[in-house]
């Protein structure tokens, strides 16, 4: 078998993606090709990624998370014999072994990894992440974000958003222009008022007294 080739196989905990030799970019391109060929097969799956001896930082890890998220695959573990890479993965809240039990829990004051999306999400695009989600761009109507934690949109939020999707009622949703089609926090649901604000102001939505409330950012 070609040693530059990326290998995807099924294991007990989902998919195991083993990168081959060759540049990071080339392997990502291969991964994207494989994902797009079997998009319906991979959708909703969980994957562990074996990156070998590569040295990866948070940016590369975000990059691959984002790529997988585009095909609705959740990355739960990143395996590498290299300490720096494993540390960066652990900081993102990823497992670093295939063992079922949690690896050493991250210290409590360290936030669970955030997924930073550096682009605009268009209709039909979906981001699913167990931690916080930060979007540097707009979220168009028809796009969807589901996050275990907070959702911050540095742009217009017109799509559907669910923060605290695993039940965290403390989660908030912030946006420069908060006008989602539908906004959910934990088990609560709200829709934007029918009439649009003429001049949008940054707002934060949170659960207060049993319902979702959005207030301008400066009135916190």
């Amino acid at each position: 078998m070609d040693r530059g080739e990326l290998v995807i196989k099924g294991i007990r905990q989902g998919l195991l993606i083993t990168l081959g030799e060759g540049s990071w970019e080339d392997q990502l391109a291969q991964l994207e090709r494989r994902l797009s060929q079997g998009a319906t097969f991979f959708r909703g799956g969980r994957a562990a990624l074996d990156v070998g001896d590569r040295r990866l930082g948070p940016a590369e890890i975000d990059q691959v998370c984002e790529l997988l998220a585009r095909y609705e695959v959740e990355l739960w573990a990143l395996l590498s014999p290299r300490d720096e890479t494993a540390l960066a993965a652990a900081r993102k809240g990823l497992a670093v072994t295939l063992a079922q039990k949690e690896p050493e829990a991250p210290p409590l004051d360290e936030p669970v990894g955030a997924l930073v999306v550096r682009r605009t999400l268009r209709s039909g695009q979906r981001i699913h992440h167990s931690g916080d989600v930060v979007v540097l761009g707009d979220v168009h109507a028809g796009a969807e974000i589901v996050a275990g934690g907070h959702v911050v949109v540095w742009g217009k939020l017109h799509g559907t958003v669910h923060a605290g999707a695993m039940g965290d009622e403390e989660a908030v949703v912030c946006a420069l222009d908060l006008a989602p089609t539908q906004l959910r926090i934990a088990g609560y649901l709200a829709r934007s008022p029918e009439e649009r604000q003429s001049r949008p102001v940054p707002e934060v939505a949170r659960v207060r007294d049993g319902k979702i409330e959005a207030v301008p950012w400066h009135q916190r």
Partner: peptide, 14 residues
């Protein structure tokens, strides 16, 4: 416009 947005997203991804 919504459908156009969907298509643009697909094209951008490629």
């Amino acid at each position: 416009v919504r459908d156009a947005d969907r298509v643009i997203g697909l094209l951008e991804a490629e």
